[in-house]
């Protein structure tokens, strides 16, 4: 009998963990989008006031949350290595390397990838406009992520409990 109870507890526990994991992904997605937004603001400020070169800007973004800081650091190393790859290639390669840590959907990724495509090749006034456009797009994605999290985070947590309990009831 106690084995049955133990199995039931295990199933409930596993379902709760799964539900929380899904809720966590929603939370992380919002946080990561906020992180990329901060990165864009940082780049915009550095370009606007200091005309700082991109490798130095990326190098100086170590205070941002993980994995944004790590992505910035890796990009800075790629740019400094002067291997002949453009920022677009380095940025996309770095994003691919950090894909397991990113909780972004396809639309989010398209906006984040555009950062690498828009930076570097234009003069400062044009660069600022491109960054402002990117910021607006990122803010929109962040708004959607926030709405989804508010709507679905609790649902996933409750769903974990409910589905676990349901399974236990069915098997018992």
């Amino acid at each position: 009998m106690w084995v049955k109870w133990l199995g039931g507890l295990f199933i409930i526990g596993a379902c709760v963990v799964l539900g929380r994991r899904q809720a966590n992904i929603l939370r992380k997605r919002e946080m990561q989008l906020q992180g990329f937004l901060q990165l864009c603001h940082r780049i915009e400020t550095e370009i606007s006031y200091g005309q700082t070169p991109l490798p130095q800007i990326f190098q100086g973004c170590q205070t941002l949350p993980f994995p944004i800081a790590a992505i910035a650091k890796e990009t800075a190393s790629g740019l400094a290595a002067q291997t002949g790859n453009t920022l677009w290639v380095i940025w996309n390669d770095t994003l691919a390397d950090f894909a397991p840590f990113l909780c972004l959907n396809k639309a989010d990724m398209e906006v984040v990838q555009a950062i690498g495509n828009e930076l570097g090749l234009s003069y400062s006034r044009e660069q600022m406009k491109k960054l402002q456009l990117l910021t607006v797009r990122l803010q929109e994605q962040e708004r959607l992520a926030h709405e989804e999290r508010v709507k679905m985070e609790r649902v996933w947590q409750v769903l974990g409990w409910c589905s676990g309990s349901m399974l236990v009831l069915l098997f018992m």
Partner: peptide, 13 residues
């Protein structure tokens, strides 16, 4: 141009 400007064309005004 990107490589020559160290990916920062705007910094060379």
């Amino acid at each position: 141009v990107l490589l020559v400007s160290h990916h920062s064309f705007y910094a060379l005004e």
